[in-house]
Amino acid sequence: MGNRTTMKGTESKEKLIRLFLLATALSAISILALISVFIFTEGLPIMFRHGFKKFLFSLDWYPTEGHFGLLPMIIGSLMVTVGAMIIGVPLGLAGAIYLTQFSSKKVRMVVKPMIELLAGIPSVVYGFIGVVILVPFVRENFGGPGFSVLTASIILGIMILPTILSISIDSLMALPPAYREGSIALGATEWQTTRMVLLPAARSGIIASIILGMGRAVGETMAVIMIAGNATSLPRTILDPVRTLTSNIALEMGYASGEHRQALFATGVILFIIIMVLNTVANLTSRKMSR
């Protein structure tokens, strides 16, 4: 008898736990849904009113006078992202190749977690280091104001390094050792093995890491505000200051009202779409990898 009651007790407890977990899972999804709905309802109407073309292709951003051209910010985001890729991808890939193929296990055990620690440094600290060290360095050595595409690209490149490096390492380590053995046994060098067998075999994981890093670069705000200069004009060289989409929202939201405020939400819509596309591509490629 006593046995049966305790059975019943565990059963209802199980049910309760299951319900609770369901609720938490649903809350995560509903928060995402709420955010999307909120951004789109706030941002889309003004885009319809003034025309998508104007938002996407006009150069003039005078929000208080009704000009909402986001092109300089779109270009700005693209430039710093591409710049960050140019710096972060080769460094990350080279690091991953070294740590998986050439270094001893001991070195990898020490270095990998240290690089992953980079991801834990708050972005304001990156911005601070940028302002104090990199901005004057760029100004003195390359010219321009120092607050520039170049400066932002370098800092962002370092910030996305852990993402690219650790996911690339994981996908290279996930390859069966038999690939490497087969290649070495044919008389290939370590480097030939890496370049001609292992990198192609780990390609989708590496691409996914690059896209995730790209997403991080597009979305980064604080560090970029501090070092990119934030001018709303089109940059002519990489030494000119730029403003990114994220910076645009963060800088002006504090005092914007009316259509200006809506235009910032429209900025958010564009950003949202860019990030969604990047994430979807990353998911699709990593799914292809697991197959």
């Binding site: 069966p176 038999a178 690939y179 053995e181 087969g182 046994a185 044919l186 067998v197």
Partner: peptide
């Protein structure tokens, strides 16, 4: 001195 392994290990190419 070529080698063939226990499990077939063609490259994924």
């Amino acid at each position: 001195v070529g080698m063939v392994f226990q499990r077939p290990n063609p490259f994924p190419l």
